[in-house]
């Protein structure tokens, strides 16, 4: 490609020279000879002229585009060029679209960064309380004249605080692994019912403690390509949430249904429900309902659940009636998206 224009030029000149030679040797009459040479030279000139003309057009066009690219980069909208049936307009509009997408992504990542900073400050705040509690009770331990009863009590308190710390760190580790996308989802065809069993087993104690009945309605033959471990984690977080908001003696129903494109895992509880105004907030990082803000938790469970499901190409939706209960739908695609 690089040499094609030189080859074209050489061929052109060769053609002209040979034409002139033939005219000089073969034709005898002087006027005809003169006219013929003139014709050939004119032809050559027109050829060269058109070559340089179109080349100039191309360089002008690219110069123009470069200028517009600069303008777009500086955020200047090319109003007068939009919506025309010209090449320039087409390219300028495409470029503006690309610029829009990138500046949007930039602002999104800035927002993310801000959120992360807030997370760190929230986290330090949450970790500080148990840590300072532990420190305080440790100091009381070093006091020589405490009764064995007190010692037992202090040890119990320290154990509780440590548990709280462990819980926070566990969530933190999981979320940081998801954030940095260090996890490799191992997508395998697996039975949904087995994944559900793992999830239910890890929350069954909490449920029994509140005398909440968990039942699963799932055909054992339903298979979906998913990551068993992380999907179980997501379902566990949803169940955990359901148990937290369902009063004692309530019910949780897990219902699985295969669709044309997605398999839906529905987790229905008889809890207090979600206020319509907050339905979109519950999946936000660090969102916690006011009435439970005393309980342990960071507001990361549902956020993590959604992240895990989205990474697998699925989505979570929620329907809720205040006072009657909520229903979370986890939809996993029946086939892996490319």
């Amino acid at each position: 490609m690089r040499f094609s224009k030189y080859i074209l030029l050489c061929l052109n000149i060769l053609l002209l020279v040979s034409g002139v030679c033939i005219a000089l040797n073969e034709v005898n009459e002087d006027t005809v000879k003169f006219l013929l040479i003139l014709c050939i030279l004119c032809f050559g000139l027109v050829h060269l002229g058109s070559y340089f003309y179109f080349r100039k057009q191309f360089t002008d066009f690219s110069d123009e585009m470069c200028y517009y690219i600069e303008e777009i980069l500086h955020g200047n909208s090319m109003k007068r060029l939009q919506n025309k049936e010209t090449l320039t307009s087409k390219i300028v509009m495409e470029l503006e679209k690309v610029e829009n997408i990138y500046s949007f992504q930039l602002s999104e990542s800035k927002k993310d960064k801000k959120e992360l900073q807030e997370m760190i400050s929230e986290l330090t705040h949450q970790i500080k309380t148990p840590a300072s509690n532990i420190q305080m009770y440790c100091e009381m331990f070093s006091d020589t004249d405490i009764s064995s009863l007190d010692a037992k009590r202090f040890a119990e308190i320290i154990r509780q605080q440590l548990k709280k710390l462990e819980f926070l760190l566990d969530i933190l580790v999981k979320s940081s692994r998801l954030e940095t996308e260090m996890i490799n989802l191992e997508m395998e065809d697996g039975k949904i019912v087995e994944t559900l069993a793992i999830a239910v087993n890890s929350v069954i104690q909490k449920a029994e403690h509140k005398n909440i009945d968990i039942s699963i309605m799932c055909s054992p033959s339903i298979q979906v390509s998913h990551d068993t471990k992380w999907t179980a984690e997501a379902i566990e977080n949803i169940l955990d949430n359901a148990i937290k908001y369902t009063p004692p003696n309530g019910k949780i129903l897990i219902f699985v249904e295969g669709g044309e494109m997605y398999t839906e895992i529905k987790v229905k509880d008889t809890g207090k429900g979600i206020e319509a105004a907050h339905v979109n907030d519950i999946f936000k990082r660090f969102y916690r309902e006011k009435s439970v803000s005393k309980n342990e938790g960071l507001g990361l469970g549902l956020y993590l659940a959604r992240k895990i499901i989205t990474l697998q190409g699925g989505y979570i939706s929620v329907r809720s009636i205040l006072g009657e209960g909520s229903s979370f739908s986890v939809c996993l695609p029946n086939r892996i998206p490319k």
Binding site: G259, Y262, Y315, S317, C331
Partner: peptide, 12 residues
Amino acid sequence: HTSQEVIGLLKA
């Protein structure tokens, strides 16, 4: 059910 699927796709 298909509605939910279509909405999910649109969102994604």
